[in-house]
Nucleic acid binder design. Sequence first.
DNA 1: AAGTGGTCTAGACCACTTT
DNA 2: AAGTGGTCTAGACCACTTC
Lengths: 271, 271
Amino acid sequence: MNPASSNPNNNGTPAGGSGGAGAGSAGVQGAGSSPTFSPLYQQIKALITQSLQSGEWKPGELIPSEVELAARFKVSQGTVRKAIDELAAENLVLRRQGKGTFVSTHHEARAHFRFLRLVPDEGLPHQPESRILEVKRARASAEVARLLEMKSGDAVVYIRRVLAFDAVPTILEEMWLPGLLFKGLTAERLVEYKGPMYGLFESEFGTRMIRASEKIRAVAADAGAAEYLRVPEGAPLLCAERVSYTYGDKAVELRRGLYLTAQHHYQIDLS
Amino acid sequence: MNPASSNPNNNGTPAGGSGGAGAGSAGVQGAGSSPTFSPLYQQIKALITQSLQSGEWKPGELIPSEVELAARFKVSQGTVRKAIDELAAENLVLRRQGKGTFVSTHHEARAHFRFLRLVPDEGLPHQPESRILEVKRARASAEVARLLEMKSGDAVVYIRRVLAFDAVPTILEEMWLPGLLFKGLTAERLVEYKGPMYGLFESEFGTRMIRASEKIRAVAADAGAAEYLRVPEGAPLLCAERVSYTYGDKAVELRRGLYLTAQHHYQIDLS
DNA sequence: AAGTGGTCTAGACCACTTT
DNA sequence: AAGTGGTCTAGACCACTTC
């Protein structure tokens, strides 16, 4: 026991010498950085996120139990629990009663539809077929660089593809990826890969997408889109411009999709 | 103390006579209903939601403190806390440290943009000007009835309006509301009312919208939309079909909006 | 039986707001 | 000083899964 020494006093005088939050574990915000203090469970959450980011626990794997983590970080199980609660709410981990807590992965049916919101007007959502049109190395334009938080002229990988539901071409999609992160990405690799592209990024390139922001507009089909989606030029299409982020809010993908919404719609829940 | 009598045993034998969950308070799921049991904090959450729905605490008002609620429901503060945590996560209440917990209201800048996702490409989001075109009583068509979970031919209120940002007409909107809930709704009342329509519904008709589901498509402007939004016939527009719900997942509004996305876009965060 | 996450309690102290 | 929500702890027991 000895309730006065180990930890119970954590949020004392911010810069004072005593107690201190989780200083015993891994130097959360040890000594010399900013004077902003955060609750213990937020620090624990940051530490766990670091381990996720560093690959100490890989997608799909089991992470240590709450009891183990509590011992490792020298805090109570309740504090670890609150940290993991938030990570689970952000879909970074997945809790399963009786089994443990797992690192989320894009190789799960569960994750597939979190980032594919185009669903059929009738019937159940399902995965589309992908046909790669083009893969090439290029230089980031000013606009692409701005959205990907890079510099103009930096190396990017450019991908273009068509997605079809039940053999009906429905999505025409362009992607720009930072060249440094996706060095070995080839058309062959993309063509042979089955399943969501984020699964490939996660497994082969160690880049796990965890969050995205989309801007949606209605646009008129240009000649190219009209051909691939088999609609008249000028037909209305949904245009979704997405920027995806990995750990630390780092932008890792720009995607621009044109969606044919004759038999499908984009589904959103406002709450 | 007396740790054996008051409450500590809650999830015991489901239909057994002993202990029981929160039976001392308000008959959570007293005796004769379904055999499905839920955690105590979920029952407390349901009780609090009932009080919100019944109007015991009105939008904008302070609800009792956690300590008071714990006494009222004869559970620990931690259990009340977890219940309120979820209500806060669902935006039904708003916690403010040091002050208390308040019932959410649509009369807040905070709430305005939760259901208006059309934001300008440049500059900050702001509230549009509303111009009412039409208000009338009508009978629900089969489609309207299905979406509003009513019967074909039931009374509805039909509203049509144009919303303009900086004097630029940008949204053409139709609404269908259950006639029973909105008996006194007149064009005059709508025209003179400033601010979001959900604020009016909440204050004047006691119907608080808490959740919505939208389906989004790209469509071509018909003659009417073209005129009101000042675009050529056939121009691409976003079409958002929304069903809004109040407490108990009861549908209370069907709304169909056509959005001009030349200077604006629909903003979504996927996480 | 043992281990995991899930619930519940009780008590302490902290940060913020108001009186 | 008193009241509120916010954090942290410690311990108990439950539900679920695996051995």
